[in-house]
Design a protein around this nucleic acid. Sequence first.
DNA 1: AACCGCAGCGTGATCTCGTCACAGACAGGA
DNA 2: TCCTGTCTGTGACGAGATCACGCTGCGGTT
Lengths: 218, 218
Amino acid sequence: MSDWISDTPALSGLEPAARAALSVLAPLTVPRGAVLFRPGEAVAGFALVLSGRIEVFLTGANGRELLLYAVEPGQSCVQTTLGLLGAAAYSGEAVSARDTRLVMVPRALFLQLMDSSPGFRRMVFAAFAERMEGMIRLMERVSFQSVDCRLAAFLTAQAQGGSLAATQQEIASQIGSAREVVSRRLESFERRGWVRRGRGRVEITDAASLARLALAEA
Amino acid sequence: MSDWISDTPALSGLEPAARAALSVLAPLTVPRGAVLFRPGEAVAGFALVLSGRIEVFLTGANGRELLLYAVEPGQSCVQTTLGLLGAAAYSGEAVSARDTRLVMVPRALFLQLMDSSPGFRRMVFAAFAERMEGMIRLMERVSFQSVDCRLAAFLTAQAQGGSLAATQQEIASQIGSAREVVSRRLESFERRGWVRRGRGRVEITDAASLARLALAEA
DNA sequence: AACCGCAGCGTGATCTCGTCACAGACAGGA
DNA sequence: TCCTGTCTGTGACGAGATCACGCTGCGGTT
């Protein structure tokens, strides 16, 4: 058995008993692009991400998508928690954005740990609180902020070394807009000298202006 | 001391010790229209509503509002929970929609009950899960559903005896739209013979058609 | 009664954005 | 080389948010 528990900082607050109970679980590996959950599916267990990244999307009637939240290493997927605590079925679609290692805690063990381990409880609660915060901020951005601001914020946040690799469709899903709109806004950014467009990638040429727009209110 | 604990069905699952700890708290009464929390305020305690109704709004830059959720009797306000568990400040505005009786559980007692009372924990968790579910459904409606559908759903849900008392501004806030849009959509509904418009009220004249539109996907 | 002031409502103009339709550009494989 | 699927660009259109008004009912004043 690998020592995934000691390698996960988020679990360092756990009591020895809880760590022992978890240690019997074997992490599983899912490749980039795999669909972990679909809307309406029953939830198998509590998902804890060790490495990689899981993205949870809402999907509209016409196929438009909106990133609800992403699960990074050390975080757990709130939707699975919901499914275990209530009767609620999964309402988002979870996709691995990269090769991802994760642990699925079965329902029975999850409930037992929730009752017996204060550390585990704190962890689950903190994750819950963080997600709720994030959802509220998301509502705020989606409802009250312009596509320009959201796009600029996304580019600023995701750029690695002055550029980022993503299709316009992917960008649109992440910021909750439509591909055509992203295309036009990027063109406008390019005219202003802020970015250069390429197939499947965007190069940032004026990060400062983008950052300024990202922080604007409208 | 009133016996508010026995009068609150949501608390019936609590252990005697937890009930005793809560019983020292005195409910307070707030009149309709009072603002309980504003964005950015620190959270004083865990809010539990006994009667009445608290509505929590997000407010955009230009004053447009969006109902995040409502706290009905027996429910708790998740935003206060967030504030107590993390460092997050309040990000919504809470207003009492009617005269409301509620109990504020101080931070220390809240944390103590969370550690010592499985029943209290379950209650808080269930509230959390329910809110998260609701937020996701709200995102779905706001992002992917037309104003017509949301308006029809609201009218259907809120009508009492074939009519409801609300200004167009209030309706707009509840469904996350603008007053002018509500005005125009209501006019369109009236032309179809579904409603009659009055100052500060809407009368439903064809509930079936409204309900049908409310269930439509787009 | 006549007057005011204000909250609520109606409406046109304009802008943003989502949607549809379609065409061109590019990449990788047969 | 050609073919096919993916990615992108673009015009047209509709829904909806915003701005800027003006109008109307209603309670309170004088």
